[in-house]
Simulated assay, not measured.
Amino acid sequence: MTDHALVLFSGGQDSATCLAWALDRFPHVETLGFDYGQRHRVELEVRAAFRERLARENPAWAARLGPDHLLTLDALREVSDTALTRETEITMQANGLPSTFVPGRNLLFVTFAAALAYRRGLRHLVAGMCETDYSGYPDCRDDTLKALQVAINLGMDRRFVLHTPLMWRDKKATWALAARLGGAALVEAIRVETHSCYLGDRTTLHAWGFGCGTCPACELRQRGWEAWAADPGKDETHD
């Protein structure tokens, strides 16, 4: 359908916010997660609870929320040697990228999402990549994703539209967007039901959510929360 969407939903803060963004705009929204043997696989385990809470607390969105899909990409782990696919220390590498960078991950995710959308008859792809407040991953860059959209549309002979609503938002603005879309209820659902910590730690609930509090993902989420809590003004970034 030309106005139906598929959200790449990992179970983290960014993709959860993107799911709310899509439900606010499209009449039918499906979700897709990927199991690639990630170290923080707990993110996959929280996806269902977040979807259920979102539907329970917002009946209008519940009517729009379609089925969830999960694809296994074991090959990605096989070709990767990173801190997200191995029990190794998170460090900065000689190339300037953190060891959490999984080469090709987002390229594969979007391509498989488009393949599923092709079969499901969905036109809009929504993903949480961002180059404003991130770890420097080259496959999160706007230029990368625009080029990928062109390649996918040529290769599949479709006119998919790839939306990245967080591309120019930092984490403070991402919390603000959630507040604008769903108020305090959505902010709280994201805070307690989603998972961003690279180490998969859900033993401690901080003000900003569960996590180890020391990995790069936790640090980004914490800084964004604290900046937003100190100045919870409206999200002024245009969609």
Score class of each variant (00 low, 15 high):
residue 102 V to R: 14
residue 115 A to W: 09
residue 63 A to I: 01
residue 222 Q to M: 08
residue 52 E to L: 05
residue 125 L to S: 08
residue 149 Q to C: 12
residue 93 Q to E: 15
residue 10 S to K: 05
residue 60 A to Q: 06
residue 43 E to D: 07
residue 81 D to L: 07
residue 237 T to F: 07
residue 32 L to S: 00
residue 184 A to K: 08
residue 239 D to A: 15
residue 118 Y to P: 03
residue 30 E to N: 03
residue 54 L to Q: 01
residue 121 G to K: 05
residue 65 L to R: 04
residue 229 A to T: 12
residue 156 M to Y: 13
residue 116 L to D: 13
residue 70 L to S: 05
residue 40 H to R: 12
residue 68 D to N: 06
residue 211 G to Y: 02
residue 87 E to K: 14
residue 212 C to G: 04
residue 165 P to A: 04
residue 73 L to E: 05
residue 156 M to H: 15
residue 8 L to F: 06
residue 235 D to I: 10
residue 48 A to M: 13
residue 151 A to P: 13
residue 239 D to F: 13
residue 217 A to H: 03
residue 212 C to V: 01
residue 82 T to R: 05
residue 181 L to I: 08
residue 199 L to M: 10
residue 118 Y to W: 15
residue 93 Q to N: 10
residue 62 A to P: 00
residue 144 T to C: 12
residue 145 L to N: 13
residue 126 V to M: 02
residue 29 V to C: 04
residue 68 D to V: 04
residue 46 V to P: 00
residue 213 G to L: 00
residue 70 L to K: 05
residue 137 Y to L: 09
residue 80 S to F: 10
residue 39 R to A: 10
residue 120 R to V: 14
residue 48 A to I: 10
residue 238 H to T: 13
residue 168 W to Y: 11
residue 193 E to L: 15
residue 93 Q to K: 08
residue 130 C to E: 08
residue 16 A to R: 06
residue 200 G to T: 06
residue 139 D to P: 12
residue 149 Q to M: 09
residue 94 A to K: 12
residue 152 I to T: 04
residue 146 K to H: 14
residue 106 N to A: 10
residue 110 V to G: 11
residue 1 M to H: 12
residue 166 L to Y: 07
residue 90 I to M: 07
residue 182 G to T: 01
residue 144 T to K: 04
residue 97 L to A: 03
residue 163 H to C: 13
residue 200 G to Q: 03
residue 78 E to H: 08
residue 154 L to G: 11
residue 66 G to S: 06
residue 184 A to Y: 00
residue 9 F to T: 00
residue 162 L to K: 00
residue 89 E to K: 08
residue 218 C to L: 10
residue 187 V to Y: 02
residue 149 Q to F: 04
residue 126 V to T: 08
residue 64 R to A: 09
residue 181 L to M: 00
residue 58 N to V: 01
residue 9 F to D: 00
residue 95 N to F: 03
residue 238 H to I: 12
residue 153 N to Q: 10
residue 148 L to S: 10
residue 145 L to P: 12
residue 122 L to M: 12
residue 134 Y to S: 11
residue 221 R to L: 07
residue 215 C to E: 01
residue 187 V to T: 14
residue 6 L to F: 09
residue 112 F to K: 15
residue 208 W to K: 01
residue 152 I to Q: 10
residue 125 L to K: 11
residue 92 M to Q: 14
residue 151 A to N: 11
residue 115 A to H: 15
residue 36 Y to M: 04
residue 175 W to C: 00
residue 237 T to I: 11
residue 51 R to M: 06
residue 108 L to N: 14
residue 210 F to S: 04
residue 144 T to D: 09
residue 182 G to M: 01
residue 130 C to I: 09
residue 147 A to Q: 06
residue 11 G to L: 14
residue 219 E to F: 05
residue 25 R to L: 04
residue 74 D to V: 03
residue 74 D to S: 13
residue 238 H to G: 12
residue 208 W to H: 14
residue 171 K to S: 07
residue 236 E to W: 02
residue 144 T to Q: 08
residue 20 A to T: 00
residue 194 T to A: 02
residue 61 W to A: 01
residue 159 R to W: 09
residue 101 F to L: 13
residue 140 C to S: 15
residue 97 L to P: 07
residue 219 E to P: 02
residue 167 M to F: 04
residue 136 G to C: 13
residue 95 N to Y: 02
